[in-house]
Amino acid sequence: MIEETKKYLHLILPFFNTKRTKEIFRINPTVIPAREEAADVAIYVYDYDQSEMKEYELEKVTDAFNCRDNNKISWINIDGIRKSDVEAICKHFGVHMLLMEDILSVGQRPKMDEIDNILFCLMNMLYFNDHNGAVESEQISIVLGKNFVISFQDDKNRDVFDQVRDKLRIPNSKLRQSGADYLCYAMIDLVVDHYYLVMEKLGERIEQLEEEIIRYGNSRSLARINNLRKELIVLKRNMAPVRDMINGFLRSESDLLQDRTTKYFKDVYDHIVQASDLVENYRDMMMTLQDLYMNKVNLRLNEVMKVMAIVTCLLAPAAVIGGIFGMNFEVIPLTHQREGFYVAVALMFIIPIWMIRVFKKRGWF
């Protein structure tokens, strides 16, 4: 009995589950959310130039201070955010206090700032959770200075920068032969390219939903439409501001950005514009699927009403004949004759059969 109850609860929960809606719309920019201190912090440093590259893990953030003036390009990747670590490294590398507050913030809108010869960008890496069909985001902050890049991540167990690490290990790669601005571009480009993987997953869910609605649309289909629309809201909210962020790099006149690197940011800009257009197409498709579902429901209702109307029409002659012969008059033709019953029953069958032929001839069913 308990198992049966759980089974039916699992079927109806999607209609009443508003937890995801609260997660999406709970962000209030006027309230500073409290960030939990990371239990474990992993600090990885990649020092490289055209001739060599060294990578190592540090135990504490102060060990990365010597990366500022080592005549090499340094990428300091900090997985797990603690306020004391962020304050210490920002103070040493000359990162403004306002930028430090953005790094420590939660739920920030993707943006780009330029303060005191430091370029800063904040964006979200997106992942698709196949288990619950939800789009998950992780805030990442990138600080670009002279010959160094500092990245801050919340989760140390996943990111999209493995391709950057692999290219750094190749001696003659474009990444090794370029400056810190190209490293910053490569990181942003990977985050934007990963958006397409998330959209591909959502696209597969939308295609499955479309086939489900066409074949046997039911109430669960409507719930899935609603859930996918919420995930598209998350996708658009995290992707749309990235266009302005990339545009900030294109308009910047900072000496940290070389002219030859600007064209690469233009390529990222084209990618994010295309991704935003694709999200809009997905939203239009969801509206179309909702209309398709409603049309199918109305069509099914019309079919049921048509069948019921035909049955009612076919039973009407029998009801009329039975009503006539059931009247309390003494003189009714065939009432007191043996053939009267058979004639009445025959009419009750012949007239509906004739009506069916007329209905088919007119194409009513």
Results as ranks from 00 to 15, higher is better:
A223I: 05
Y46A: 13
P241S: 06
A346N: 09
M53T: 13
V358M: 11
R35H: 09
Q337T: 15
K22C: 04
Q177A: 15
V86I: 14
F65S: 00
I272S: 05
A64I: 05
L257I: 15
K263W: 00
Q258Y: 12
I12L: 11
E204Y: 00
T5H: 12
A42V: 11
K174W: 01
I81Q: 01
R35W: 04
F325A: 10
I225M: 06
D244Y: 02
L235G: 02
V307K: 14
F152Q: 02
Y195S: 04
K201Y: 10
V311Q: 12
K230T: 07
Y196E: 03
S137C: 06
L301R: 00
S141L: 05
G107K: 07
M287Q: 07
K236P: 01
Y269L: 13
Y269R: 07
R109D: 09
F359E: 10
R220T: 11
A42E: 01
S74P: 12
T5D: 11
K19G: 11
P14A: 10
R220M: 10
G107L: 09
V149Y: 05
Y196N: 04
Y182P: 13
F65H: 11
Q290I: 09
N77G: 10
Y48T: 04
M285K: 01
K266G: 07
L190N: 07
L209P: 01
R237S: 08
Y196S: 06
E136M: 13
S254F: 14
D63Q: 15
G203W: 01
D79S: 15
K263L: 04
D244S: 15
L209C: 07
M53F: 06
W75N: 11
K174C: 03
V149T: 07
F25E: 00
A316Q: 04
G323D: 00
R251V: 01
M123R: 00
T312A: 15
G323K: 09
Y56G: 14
I356P: 02
E200L: 01
Y127E: 00
Y264A: 05
K296I: 03
C121W: 01
T5Q: 13
S219Y: 03
G145Q: 08
K360N: 13
N117W: 08
K7M: 07
A64S: 12
V41A: 11
K156E: 00
F93G: 05
R283Y: 02
D291Q: 10
W354E: 04
D154G: 15
S74V: 05
I89T: 03
I188K: 02
V242I: 15
N302E: 14
R237N: 13
T18A: 11
V135I: 15
H336T: 12
F25T: 02
V106P: 01
N226I: 06
R224W: 03
I353D: 02
D79Q: 12
R82D: 01
I140D: 00
I233P: 02
G107Q: 10
I214T: 15
E55D: 13
I170K: 15
S151V: 04
M187I: 14
F341K: 02
F25P: 00
M308S: 08
R68H: 07
F16H: 12
L190Y: 01
G217W: 12
A34M: 07
I356Q: 05
C121Y: 03
P29S: 07
N302V: 06
N238L: 03
K6V: 00
K7C: 02
I76Q: 07
E280Q: 07
R35P: 04
V41H: 09
Q50K: 09
V164G: 06
Q108L: 11
G340A: 15
N281F: 06
P171C: 02
L11S: 08
L209Q: 03
